[in-house]
């Protein structure tokens, strides 16, 4: 099982804050993004378009980073807030 964590505004897009997926072998962040895009098209598009930061086991990842069973993959959108 791979644990997926969604942060901030991505929770609304994914409709959940985390989920567990059965990968059935090694995959990549890109393939995971494509799979997520099937249920949440906007989220998939953002992941594949590099609009969100992805980490695998708390280490920042690229689209080619491998993802294996037991990994924790986090998706983090940029925040704009601060002053006003």
């Amino acid at each position: 099982m791979t644990r997926l964590l969604y942060f901030a505004s991505l929770r609304a897009l994914a409709g959940k804050s985390e989920e567990s997926l059965e990968l059935g072998g090694e995959t990549t962040v890109r393939a995971l993004g494509e799979r997520i895009g099937k249920t949440s098209p906007k989220l998939g598009e953002m992941i594949l378009g590099k609009k969100v930061m992805v980490s695998v086991n708390q280490d920042v990842a690229t689209l080619d980073t491998p993802v294996r069973d037991g990994d924790e993959v986090a998706f983090l959108p940029p925040f704009s807030g601060g002053a006003i």
């Binding site: 505004s9 590099k50 609009k51 930061m53 920042v60 940029p78 925040f79 704009s80 807030g81």
Partner: peptide, 14 residues
């Protein structure tokens, strides 16, 4: 981290 900004309107501000 974020080479490109998100599409306008997708990320709300405070």
């Amino acid at each position: 981290l974020y080479p490109e900004p998100p599409p306008p309107g997708l990320v709300p501000n405070c």
